[in-house]
Amino acid sequence: MTLSIDIKGVGVHYGRTVAVENVSFKLEGNKIYGLLGRNGSGKTSLLSVLASFRQPTTGEVLIDGKITFENAEIMSQVCFIQEHGHMSDGYSVKDAIKLAASCWPNWDEQYANYLLDLYQLSQKKRISSLSRGMKSALGVTIGLASRAPITIFDEAYLGMDAPTRYAFYEEVLRDYMEHPRTFILSTHLIEEVGNLFEEVLILDNGRLLLQEESELLRQRGVTITGPAERVDEYVIGLQVLGEQTLGRTKSVTVYGELSQERVNRARTDGLELGPVALQDLFVHLTKKGGEGI
């Protein structure tokens, strides 16, 4: 079952603070999406609205064409995990798993047990006594074992060490291939997870900066390196995201695909064209005071 997501002009305000402003996008589903944004860019607010944790101040959130808020049929298909998944601190790991198991229609008990073993989570422990990484592991366990058609992880790796994080990414990918469904991962550790995303959305200051297939996005960024004056001349008419100078050599990052003619010109000008890592592209696009795109 593929559930499409349709966000229409969504705004989330907290009193006078505007966390998300007029965001619209569509996700067709059954893909791994990356939601990227700096801290405070509105990722969590947007995801909270998507998961019916709160009502949008403006606009509409539709899943499968239906308004999501307080829609029992939809809400039981959307699992949103932040750290330990909002479970009460007084619960033991066992209580939390039991509650999740009884609530999620597609819950896979075997898989949950496998994950608990993988993360070495003791069932008897109280959530309040778990380390941050262990809380995250519990959240990840609940999120994955819920097998919810739409599963959202909001920086779910907080406190996890690198091997545990990589185990998480691998698990997401493996389970996604075995049980195709929609995953939305919000993160700023793009270098680590970037390759997992089929599509990327970037939020900046509460607004949607772009939504793009990640392979296309990767191709959008180009660095041009060479003698400063020739580089400057070359980038006229291109969208410059950032530049660096070393002596008389200059390196400029531009956004947008280069025409074949431009590529040829670079060769004759003796300029070197290079790729931009997704992480760098993200940093340039969301730079403070940057004009964005």
Partner: peptide, 13 residues
Amino acid sequence: LSLSSFVSSGITR
């Protein structure tokens, strides 16, 4: 104590 646990498990208010 309990509302968040249930709503975050996909139960409506």
